[in-house]
Design a protein around this nucleic acid. Sequence first.
DNA 1: TAGCTCATTCTCGCAATATGAGAAACATTG
DNA 2: CAATGTTTCTCATATTGCGAGAATGAGCTA
Lengths: 245, 245
Amino acid sequence: MAGLDRYIAVLRLYSQSQSEWTVIDMAERLGVPQSTVYRTVRDLVGENFLETASEARYRLGSVFIEFDRLLRLTDPLLTAGSQVLEEVVAAVGVPCVGLLCRLYNDTVMCIADATAPGATFSSSYERGRPMPLTMGATSKAILAHLPTRRFNRVIDQWPEARTQAFRAELMAVRKSGVCVSSGEIDANVVGVAAPILSKTPGLLASLSLVLPQSIADDAMVARIAAATMAGARHIEEGLASSGGL
Amino acid sequence: MAGLDRYIAVLRLYSQSQSEWTVIDMAERLGVPQSTVYRTVRDLVGENFLETASEARYRLGSVFIEFDRLLRLTDPLLTAGSQVLEEVVAAVGVPCVGLLCRLYNDTVMCIADATAPGATFSSSYERGRPMPLTMGATSKAILAHLPTRRFNRVIDQWPEARTQAFRAELMAVRKSGVCVSSGEIDANVVGVAAPILSKTPGLLASLSLVLPQSIADDAMVARIAAATMAGARHIEEGLASSGGL
DNA sequence: TAGCTCATTCTCGCAATATGAGAAACATTG
DNA sequence: CAATGTTTCTCATATTGCGAGAATGAGCTA
């Protein structure tokens, strides 16, 4: 292992359940000598990717917050979408959660969310958390629009997605431009998602609204679906006009 | 230049005003051959630190959002502080903005903020934006508690901070445990900040409330100062009990 | 389809740099 | 002051990244 990999390997050790590491533990886990890890860690600390916690422990550094801001300010999808997201959530006028999510390798990641006043629940799609591609309206709206080659590769990896019924469902999503699912990720909520397409390679996203099952009758879902699709179109326009091409 | 530096040099090219770069431009700016930059960029894209935009352009990648979430979930100061921050803002009951900021190299960076309903302004201390150490209550509350050696080093770099009056002011802040400033960063607002101290090396932060000058009479400032200091103490306790030592 | 223009990857010899094991320095604590 | 644990340093080795240019590939245009 060398170059960037060594640094990334250290950063990828960090997780919600283990947020502090000693050099010793890193070295053992990665199978490299301590002296090497010390050097790596020292470099990462120098660039604020890591910082010293108490007593020989290291945790993630604040540089990520700094770059996250830069991303919020400059990412075309975020700049075009977060405003629309707020508006759509406000416009539908029901206690719901709005999500702006995008394809992220073989996962889906939320990059912005908006909670309507009165919403007493939250979505598992929290900002920055990679989610599976094959479950939930938010994800399936994206999956349905993957290029065939990649679509098949993904499908092959998730056993539960290899059925003919699943393929048919996604075809329907692709046709109708909206995906509705109920309780697939979080119990007792319904997700309504519309894909956001763009000519930019690799930029594939979805706008979705999540609402309690209790208020999600057919009429409501139809209304939410219309709002979601309109919002998605709106964001696509914003992307196109911002030079996102 | 080698190792991490080369990668960081590329990432540091990105700014709010220039958020997309071609390899050619990077190479020219950094003074290294294109082939080298291509390699570097390829590695960064592979780890999602960069992503392809349209037409040979690259922009920052979403990995920062992913790690930002990890930080929000696990950083001791954030986990101990964001809750308190909300509470303090809600408790004072005036249209204000609450900030949780920390020392970040020789700058101050906001890591969490909370806006009270009705606040029609915002602070320059937006989350993730490095701010100078010598201006604004938020920053000076932190500066006043830097170890002497480092304090002097910082002071020397900012010409406007080399006066005796400035040193005296900071001494007073250190004694009283609160710093109040008016219009130093943003016009027409008053900042009230209390330092957050911890035994963790390098962890130095402040909790501050920003409110319109129009409502900031002496009585109000005194009340806000008390609330801010109480909140800061509260966060310190949270830090200590969470093993933050 | 041929021919053009970019963007990106590849080739290869060379020099720079990371590597790893252990020792030395440094800090803390009893 | 000894003892423990952390971090940096030393040094010989060889892995790896480097740089210049060529080769590939993807779009376009005619």
